[in-house]
Amino acid sequence: MKIIKFIISLLFGLMFINAGLNKFLNYMPMPKPTPEQMKLFAAFEEISWLMPLVGAVEIIGGLLFIFQKTRALGAIVILPVMVGIICHIFMIDKSTSGMAIAGVLFLINLLMIIDNKEKYKSLVK
């Protein structure tokens, strides 16, 4: 079970590291955006600091998520990004494949938070 958890955490972390690096290096091609997405991207361009911040959080959270000792912190760091991804897919994107992938990633994140719940007890006293 320990090795399965590590493999899942490694893949999860690498996906977020990749997504974060893409925000800085723009190496993955994007599909043609819809008019709704164009409005969103224009707003993101106006808030010029937002995407670098999200990219940095994804890279740091992904790195923390990989290692067992820092996985609890990584799961909490990634959680707001996951909520943003879920909201974006349900409100803007509406693609079923995106919903499936985001749902699985969100479930993995929640399972790791639940698995590490003892580490969070001092935060909620």
Rank of each mutant, 00 (worst) to 15 (best):
L11C: 15
F12Y: 15
L14N: 07
L14M: 12
M15H: 09
F16G: 11
I17H: 03
I17D: 01
N18Q: 08
N18H: 09
A19M: 12
A19D: 12
G20R: 11
G20V: 11
N22K: 14
L25S: 12
L25D: 08
N26C: 07
N26G: 08
N26A: 15
Y27H: 12
M28A: 04
P29M: 02
M30F: 00
M30T: 05
P31Y: 02
P31E: 11
K32E: 13
P33Q: 06
P35S: 03
E36S: 01
E36F: 00
M38T: 04
F41S: 05
F44C: 03
E46V: 00
E46G: 09
I47T: 06
I47P: 01
S48C: 00
W49Q: 08
W49E: 06
M51S: 01
P52R: 07
P52L: 08
L53D: 03
V54Q: 02
G55N: 05
A56W: 01
E58G: 10
L63N: 02
L64G: 12
L64A: 11
F65K: 09
I66Y: 10
F67S: 06
A72I: 03
L73N: 10
G74N: 11
A75F: 05
V77Y: 05
V77D: 06
L79F: 15
V81R: 01
H88F: 15
H88Y: 15
H88E: 08
M91W: 14
I92E: 00
D93M: 11
D93Q: 13
D93L: 13
D93R: 08
D93V: 09
T96P: 03
T96M: 15
S97G: 12
G98F: 06
M99I: 10
M99F: 11
M99D: 08
A100G: 02
I101H: 01
G103V: 04
G103Q: 00
V104Y: 09
F106N: 04
F106Y: 09
F106A: 15
L107K: 06
I108T: 15
